[in-house]
């Protein structure tokens, strides 16, 4: 899981020290990546997000799954 190695600064700039790739993350993306790297599961992340962003847990859960697919596309998640 390459997301564990990402160096993310407070502005949401992420650097992958293995490949040199860089990414710009918004607050939500940063939060999800940091939580996934800590091993928190999708449901827990969705619960947190639904409180923070006033969306239903179901909506948040689908968004987290969508985002995980994006991370896979970039090779950051296997």
């Amino acid at each position: 899981m390459r997301i564990e190695n990402l160096a993310i600064n407070k502005n949401g700039f992420a650097f992958d020290p293995t490949t040199g790739e860089t990414f710009t993350l918004n607050d939500t993306a940063r939060e999800i990546i940091e939580d996934l790297a800590k091993g928190i599961d999708e449901k827990e992340i969705a619960k947190k997000l639904s409180k923070e962003y006033e969306v239903t847990e179901e909506e948040a859960f689908n968004d987290v799954l969508d985002f995980k697919e994006k991370l896979k596309l970039y090779g950051l998640l296997s």
Binding site: F15, D16, P17, T18, T19, G20
Partner: peptide, 22 residues
């Protein structure tokens, strides 16, 4: 080890970043 971030039209490195690709 480095990654080429930007290159010239001949593919020569202009900007780069060090990496640790084991």
């Amino acid at each position: 080890a480095v990654k080429k971030m930007t290159t010239t039209h001949l593919g020569k490195i202009w900007n780069g970043v060090t990496i640790k690709h084991d």
